[in-house]
Design a protein around this nucleic acid. Structure first.
Lengths: 131, 131
DNA sequence: AGTATTCCTACTAAACTGGTAGGAATTTAA
DNA sequence: TTAAATTCCTACCAGTTTAGTAGGAATACT
């Protein structure tokens, strides 16, 4: 998603390019794509000259959006979302803590957009050029 | 640890009691104890009339202490602590985010002590009595 | 028609999680 | 001194998750 953000506005990007730049296999990346499409964070064009693009501006995609889609949840324990998995949920003190923890994780990740990463990236590059 | 905190000041507590109150097996609890001892969060007395006690006051044990001991770490990716696991660490933007995330998780958990849980517990119980 | 590329489904190997099991060591108490 | 209670140590195990690989179908451009 970071590579797509870097490429935003320049047409579709190939998995092959992303694979090279991020040192991952195309086969693996293919696996990550479907949920991102369902969540309408990216769209694809098939066939030759195809590829992937972000479906929204990098300013409008938070890391929370992405991680929720790729990892499924942000809580440290299932019981936060589904109290019924444990019959102690009703009065469990620890569960209150897990809930709090999910909130801060959630807030932290929602605080970063893809654009922030892009900006960081250019700052870092710039910084290293000055060394 | 919560049960030990509830029992703090009343001598050693049996794993059997904890197992009953938390609906876990003694066999499983036995597994959790050694790291807690090494970290000097609890101490034990063996043999008949033995059991476990907190090694410090509940006010002096944070949830971060406990979870670090039982779960080993708080970061979402190994690279936060060990940059060498990935040769992209040096310039990886995502790693900066994982580091930030670990910080907020860490801070949140360090913000709760066992005594806070005990207090919450009594408040809840009290609240339910009023229903 | 051929090539490039996404898309779909199945498979797999290693690690992790949440346990169970057997039995030795230690302490108290009758 | 023996029996009972309990922690302690080591080994094992089964299900789930993670991080992939693999084959080949569908689609679109040239």
């Amino acid at each position: 998603m970071f590579q797509l953000a870097l490429n935003y506005g320049n047409g579709p990007m190939l998995l092959k390019e992303i694979a090279e730049k991020e040192d991952l296999s195309v086969r693996y990346l293919e696996h990550l794509v479907p949920p991102l499409k369902t969540a309408r964070l990216v769209y694809s064009t098939r066939g030759a000259r195809g590829g992937y693009s972000l479906a929204k501006a990098p300013t409008d995609i938070t890391l929370k959006d992405i991680i929720r889609v790729l990892e499924g949840h942000l809580y440290p324990s299932e019981c936060v979302e589904s109290p019924e998995v444990c019959n102690r949920s009703r009065f469990c003190i620890t569960r209150d803590i897990w809930t709090k923890l999910e909130e801060t994780i959630s807030t932290t990740l929602a605080g970063f957009t893809l654009q922030d990463l892009v900006d960081k990236y250019y700052n870092k590059t710039h910084y290293e050029e000055l060394q």
